[in-house]
């Protein structure tokens, strides 16, 4: 196994083992979506209209909740120091850890979204597109979260600070993710332009975010 693959496999295994981290994220997603109708009322037409937005916002919160896992544990127990003396350049290290976060957070959340869509009366034929937008958009979510996680490494109240730093950066993802789905349901226009924008944002984040995260890691390790 190459070092990069070894690191990826290890991070995914840790997410499975450490206190059911994946399960908690999925549970959080379910809770956030499930309590919203109590505030809005059970009107199915209203819920269907706002479903894409609610599903996306809840997904961002759930992904953010687990974002400090990307670097925090490795920083606390000294693993990050040894990782840094390894053969991988720091940006690649950050990229692999972001990828592991995507595999253990973005992918399960995207796969769960249709079930929650049922709760919100999202039309069945919108489900494939919903999942597709989430698969396209969640890489950006994980890779940008890694920037926040590395910036807040070892700080007090890092979780809240992380949310404050990163949520504004999610605005474009949210806009294009939600409008792809609602364009498909109510229009106007084709869902393709926002979908392609979303994909572009993800691809750019995959390339650029690890550079920022690596720079932040370097300062955090001093």
């Amino acid at each position: 196994m190459s070092p990069a693959v070894a690191l990826l496999v290890r991070d995914v295994k840790l997410a499975w083992r450490e206190g059911g981290a994946i399960g908690v994220v999925l549970g959080f997603y379910l809770v956030v979506v499930a309590i919203m109708p109590f505030g809005l009322g059970p009107d199915l037409n209203l819920l269907a209209r706002i479903a894409p937005g609610m599903l996306w916002v809840a997904l961002l919160l759930a992904a953010l909740l687990s974002a400090d896992r990307i670097f925090h544990n490795d920083y606390e127990d000294g693993t990050l120091d040894v990782l840094a003396t390894g053969p991988l350049p720091l940006p690649l290290l950050a990229a692999i850890k972001s990828l592991a976060h995507w595999l253990t957070t973005g992918v399960p959340l995207a796969l769960m979204a249709p079930v929650l869509g049922l709760l919100l009366n999202l039309p069945l034929d919108a489900m494939p597109l919903l999942v597709a937008t989430m698969f396209a958009g969640t890489p950006a979510v994980s890779f940008i979260a890694a920037i926040g996680a590395s910036l807040t490494l070892g700080l007090r109240r890092s979780g809240l600070l992380l949310a404050l730093l990163v949520l504004p950066l999610y605005v474009p993802v949210l806009i294009f993710g939600v409008s792809t789905v609602s364009m498909n349901i109510v229009g106007p226009g084709s869902p393709w332009p926002p979908f392609l924008m979303l994909t572009a944002i993800s691809l750019a984040s995959i390339v650029l975010a690890p550079l920022a995260a690596a720079a932040a890691l370097r300062t955090a390790m001093r």
Binding site: M1, P3, A6, L7, R10, K13, L14, R17, E18, E76, D77, G78, T79, D81, V82, L83, T85, G86, P87
Partner: peptide, 21 residues
């Protein structure tokens, strides 16, 4: 700091470092 993952076995911890390094 020991750079040990408590949810991994002793062998897994070492095997990871051998692979990664």
């Amino acid at each position: 700091l020991n750079a040990i993952k408590t949810s991994f076995s002793v062998g897994e911890n070492l095997a990871f470092w051998a692979e990664f390094l």
